[in-house]
Design a protein around this nucleic acid. Structure first.
Lengths: 335, 335
DNA sequence: GTGCGGCACGTGAACGTTCACGTAGTATCC
DNA sequence: GGATACTACGTGAACGTTCACGTGCCGCAC
């Protein structure tokens, strides 16, 4: 539960050891280690040399305690093996690093855990929290106390900050595109991660109804092989599908494979549209048309929210702390 | 440089605030917060309630200081947008999390920084360090003092622990496969990340010489578009290439694209072999033959080394702390 | 009623830094 | 030659916990 101290409490060298070895005081060692003024170059050099020899490294705990530093940003990710999340995480890490944060990453999907597990692990160790936490944003905020929490993709989120996506717009845009490509039999392949229907799934269903489209819906696990399997089954059940919208790009990759397996051409026999716009899409054959997120903008926005919440420039839970971003259609070969 | 404390040092609630509010002592609050014995259920409940109301969260600095905890593992990654690294990172995060570590990830490629930048950022904040640090393993160990450092892919590494790969074996296996596929004109597409020739490049050249193969070598940046561009140019220069070994799977994906652009079939006109065995390979068309690493084994080995070094079960810099792993050929469609 | 054990809770000390001072000694200025 | 300023260093206090004790109190057996 609580992170366990590892066994043999080997006494690390402290600042006093270095001070004693150099025949100076704590404060002089501090000055040497932190390149502060008020110390002669000779002494500085000698102390640094001695510190290196003793293997002295300042305790981040002691330093953090006295300085009250806010340096660690927690990043909770459902599944790093799904390329969307590294793409997102990499922009968060990049932006946050630029702003002086250290990013602590927790992947809670692997151990088939929930977001709450990640929160429990991260909360004691970080000064702010960002992540795809599913439905546990209120628990997260409770665990984090007054520290900033930014939750992605949970419109009902009860965290201090939130970023969600305009799926109604995305769904409408995708279906319009499929109609423009003269698709008659349109299907949606959903993820089964969140139960009977995802937020995306509901938006697609609504958009289809609005556009008078009779939509075939199928669910599969959020992975390429599962999607491949599901589309294979879908083709067997209902051969005539000629337009396919998919929950995300990874599953779309699997869908493309299944269509190829069945000897169908894309987009000739069936057009395919993915969602999120990860770089993978460009490497597929045919290249994947997708509703792309500006991933850099998402990452930047998340870190912005954290910084602003911390600075008190935003009121926690206020309108301004709840961002809504849009997917934009990127036309490539598959639709 | 040093992580800056963020501006307004808003006084967080401390254990004393909670104690005062509850009319009990520090220690009783500690007992309540950490579910320790020696406290009545009534008091525990009341204190927890009050703590939540006050937004009290224990300071990890104070706690770490007194407990001497080793909880944070630094993970230095050159470029999270290259899917190899998330694949590696995800196993490290998974395994390390299981063992009670928090993983602090630093991506030093984006800012066009070097591994040394990552080390400078991570060293003050972590209890151990793992990563692809390029050539700065000795600097890393110096910054980390006596704390464990495990460096990947730097055979000359001067860190406490190391994991490297048997590229001679990999190169031999790949070239054998291409020869078995009756390729006559074999080329190697190298990365230009490390200068004129990479460790992998040298191994491939040596293996080619050994096998009596006259090898065409070309370099490109470590990305799919750059590889695509380079292979396009290679085809223009020397059309007859019918066997292509590529630095890694991401670049191989770009190479496949270039061959398709040129109207060549794979593996008919040209066989392609990638390296590292990332999941992406299976999604490409044709599916990528590759020299695959057991990525889970690599991640597990890295964390094992850290734990053993920390426990003193391994001597830093000893033979046992230097692992060599092998790529194994995974035959798919492209060769 | 005395002794003893257990329960619920409190208190001094320690963890390793940095901050905000304080203090010698030396040079500077007129 | 005495006040002033600067340089190079030292010292008490504080940061917020947990650890290892210590202390009342109540009940119970004999």
């Amino acid at each position: 539960m609580t992170p366990s101290a590892r066994e043999p409490r080997i006494r690390r060298a402290t600042i006093l050891d270095v001070a004693a070895a150099a025949g100076v005081s704590r404060q002089t060692v501090t000055r040497a280690m932190n390149d502060m003024p008020g110390i002669s170059p000779t002494t500085r050099e000698r102390v640094q040399q001695l510190a290196a020899e003793l293997g002295y490294t300042p305790s981040r705990f002691a330093k953090g305690l006295v300085q009250g530093a806010r340096v660690s940003l927690g990043l909770a990710i459902p599944d790093l093996t799904n390329p969307y999340f590294p793409a997102f995480a990499s922009t968060v890490v990049e932006v946050a690093t630029q702003r002086g944060w250290n990013v602590v990453v927790d992947d809670f999907g692997h151990g088939s855990g929930s977001g709450l597990d990640a929160v429990n692990r991260l909360a004691p160790q970080v000064d702010a929290l960002v992540g795809y936490l599913g439905a546990c944003s209120s628990d997260a905020q409770a665990m984090m106390g007054r520290r900033p929490v930014v939750v992605l993709d949970d419109p009902s989120g009860h965290a201090a900050g939130g970023i969600s996506f305009d799926y109604a717009y995305a769904a409408r845009t995708a279906l319009e595109r499929l109609q423009a490509a003269h698709c008659r039999e349109i299907a949606y392949l959903d993820s089964n991660q969140e139960g009977p229907a995802t937020t995306r799934g509901l938006a697609v269903a609504a958009a289809a109804k609005e556009a008078g489209i009779e939509l075939t819906v199928r669910q599969a696990a959020d992975s390429a092989p599962a999607a491949r399997q599901a589309v294979r089954a879908m083709i067997e059940d209902r051969g005539g599908i000629d337009g396919l919208l998919v929950f995300n790009d990874l599953m779309a990759a699997g869908a493309l494979k299944a269509l190829q397996d069945a000897g169908k051409t894309v987009p000739g026999d069936c057009a395919v549209i993915g969602m999120d716009g990860i770089p993978l899409g460009e490497l597929l054959t045919p290249e994947l048309t997708t509703l792309a997120l500006d991933l850099r903008a998402v990452g930047r926005a998340a870190v912005d929210l954290v910084d602003n919440l911390l600075a008190g420039a935003l009121e926690a839970g206020s309108e301004d702390a709840m961002l809504v971003l849009r997917h934009e259609l990127v036309l490539r070969q598959s639709a």
